[in-house]
Amino acid sequence: MKNIITFGAGLIFGLGLIISGMTNPSKVIGFLDLAGKWDPSLAFVMLGAIVVAFFAFRRAEAKALTVFDEPIHLPAKTHISKELVIGSMLFGAGWALAGFCPGPAIVALGAGYQKAFIFVIAMLLGMAAHEYLYKK
């Protein structure tokens, strides 16, 4: 049952990315291009997502158990570290260069785009590089 729910959640997430326009890098870049013909659509993606998820997370914070009475795993970190700031800034730069963030890249990979495959392989290598440099 939980497996079906999890798969369904991934599917709904992917469909949401497709419908919202997030899986189209040129639309993402149109959103980031404030100085050009700015397309604010993607602000509505975040608005829609937060309006719904806000209530779910409020319940999760109030009662740290799932519907199945299992623990909810919430991040415990609260420190604003330089890694948080620098890492997020590097991510934003990469996001603008290709128009892909991780979720939409995975969806476009599933759609068979060769360029998404190249991006995802590089992304995995970037993650591996971080692991190699910082975790061991």
Binding site: I86, G87, S88, F91, G94, L97, F100, I118, G126
Partner: peptide
């Protein structure tokens, strides 16, 4: 871009 996204999301 992929390297930056992979590295940056792990660091951040």
């Amino acid at each position: 871009a992929g390297l930056l996204v992979g590295f940056g999301t792990q660091m951040g």
